[in-house]
C-alpha cells in the first residue's frame, strides 16, 4: 500500500470539516502515510489548520494567485501533478469534491469512485447507488491510483492533535485561462449552524406553503440550536435557497437529530438522511412514507404542532 493524498476543501479562510472526514477514511485502512494538498491564495492559516489534523504526515501547500477560488479546471492539473507519488487521492463528496475529483481522475487516466462509505483494506470499497436503494462493493485493485470522493456523512472527522510538516510547493502545471471565477452568492444562514455538520437539523417541505410560513421552521431550529434544511419541493417553490436542499441530489447529512416537517419522505429525500441518529417526522398524513424511517412520528397539522413545540421548547 502507498500513501494517501487528500484535497483540502476550504472557503479561502478556514478548512472545511470535510477534509478531516477524508482523513478519517484514510485512517481506516493501513497505508504508508496521509498527506493533505492545500491549494489557496494567502492560505497560510488553512495549511496550519490542516497540519493539526491527527494522522496527517505532510501538508503540501501551493499558495498562488491562481488558487483564490476552487475552480476544477485550474485545481485539477495541480492535484494531478502531485498525485503521481500516491496510491490514493481522496476528496470529499461535497460539491467541491464532486466537481474536482473526476477531472483529476481523467487527467490521471483512471476511473473514480464516488461516495465511498467504508473500506476494509483500501482496495475494496462500499458505495451507494440508486439513491441509496442498494450498496455495491467495488474492488479497485486494478487501478494504479485510486481516486475517490469520500461520503462525508459516513465518517466522523479526525480530531486535532497532529503536527504535520508544511511543505511549500510551486505550481507544476499549466493553468488554463478559459474558466474564470465571478462571485459566490452565499446565503450565510443567519448565523445558524452549518447544515452539513450540525448536530441537529430541522427541515421543512412543501406543506409550509410559503416563504413566510417557513419562519416556523427557523423558529423551531433556533430553539434547539439546529441548522435548517428543506425538501426539493420547498426549494423549487422558492421558500428557501438551494443550498438547504437535503437528499440524493442535495446534501447528504448525518445529524444526531433530524426533524422533518411537512415532508412526505420521497426516496430521493430519505437517501439524504439515512445516517441521522434519530429521525422525527411531523406530517398530517399517517400514511406518509416518512413515517417508515422515523424513530418518532407525530401525525398532526404542522401549523398546530410546530407553534406548540416552539412554546414547549421555550428558552
Amino acid at each position: 500500500m502507498g500513501r494517501v493524498l487528500i484535497c483540502a476543501e476550504h472557503d479561502g479562510e478556514r478548512l472545511n470539516l470535510s477534509t478531516a472526514k477524508c482523513v478519517s477514511c484514510a485512517n481506516s485502512f493501513a497505508n504508508d502515510g496521509i498527506d493533505i494538498a492545500v491549494l489557496s491564495e494567502n492560505g497560510g492559516a488553512i495549511a496550519s489548520e490542516a497540519s493539526a489534523i491527527d494522522g496527517v504526515s505532510k501538508v503540501l501547500h501551493i499558495d498562488s494567485n491562481d488558487n483564490g477560488a476552487p475552480l476544477a479546471a485550474i485545481w485539477a492539473p495541480q492535484i494531478a501533478a502531485l498525485a503521481t507519488d500516491y496510491s490514493h487521492v481522496f476528496g470529499p463528496s461535497t460539491t467541491f469534491g464532486k466537481d474536482l475529483m473526476p477531472r483529476v481522475a481523467a487527467l490521471l487516466g483512471t476511473g473514480q469512485l464516488s461516495d465511498i462509505m467504508s473500506t476494509t483494506d483500501g482496495r475494496v470499497f462500499q458505495r451507494p447507488i440508486y439513491a441509496g436503494n442498494a450498496i455495491v462493493t467495488v474492488d479497485a485493485s486494478a487501478c494504479s491510483i485510486i481516486v475517490a470522493t469520500v461520503r462525508t456523512a459516513s465518517y466522523v472527522a479526525a480530531e486535532e492533535g497532529g503536527n504535520a510538516t508544511i511543505e511549500h510547493r510551486a505550481t507544476e502545471a499549466e493553468i488554463p485561462s478559459h474558466t474564470r471565477y465571478v462571485e459566490l452568492k452565499g446565503d450565510t444562514g443567519g448565523g445558524r449552524p452549518d447544515l452539513q455538520t450540525a448536530a441537529r437539523v430541522v427541515s421543512g417541505g412543501r406543506a409550509l406553503g410559503s416563504e413566510d410560513n417557513f419562519k416556523l421552521i427557523y423558529d423551531l431550529a433556533d430553539r434547539i440550536d439546529a441548522a435548517v434544511g428543506a425538501s426539493r419541493a420547498a426549494v423549487d417553490s422558492g421558500y428557501v435557497a438551494n443550498d438547504l436542499q437535503v437528499g440524493q441530489t442535495g446534501k447528504i447529512i448525518a445529524p444526531d437529530l433530524y426533524i422533518a416537517i411537512g415532508i412526505s419522505g420521497a426516496i430521493q429525500h430519505l437517501t439524504g438522511i439515512k445516517d441521522a441518529g434519530t429521525i422525527v417526522a411531523i406530517n398530517k398524513d399517517s400514511e406518509a412514507p416518512i413515517f417508515e424511517v422515523a424513530d418518532f412520528g407525530l401525525v398532526a397539522d404542522l401549523f398546530d404542532a410546530v407553534p406548540d413545540l416552539i412554546a414547549r421548547l421555550g428558552r
Binding site: 474558466t179 474564470r180 465571478v182 459566490l184 452568492k185 435557497a241
Partner: peptide, 11 residues
C-alpha cells in the same frame, strides 16, 4: 448550485 450557495463563473 454549490454547497455554500450560488457560484457564478464565466467561461
Amino acid at each position: 448550485e454549490v454547497d455554500a450557495g450560488l457560484e457564478v463563473i464565466e467561461f
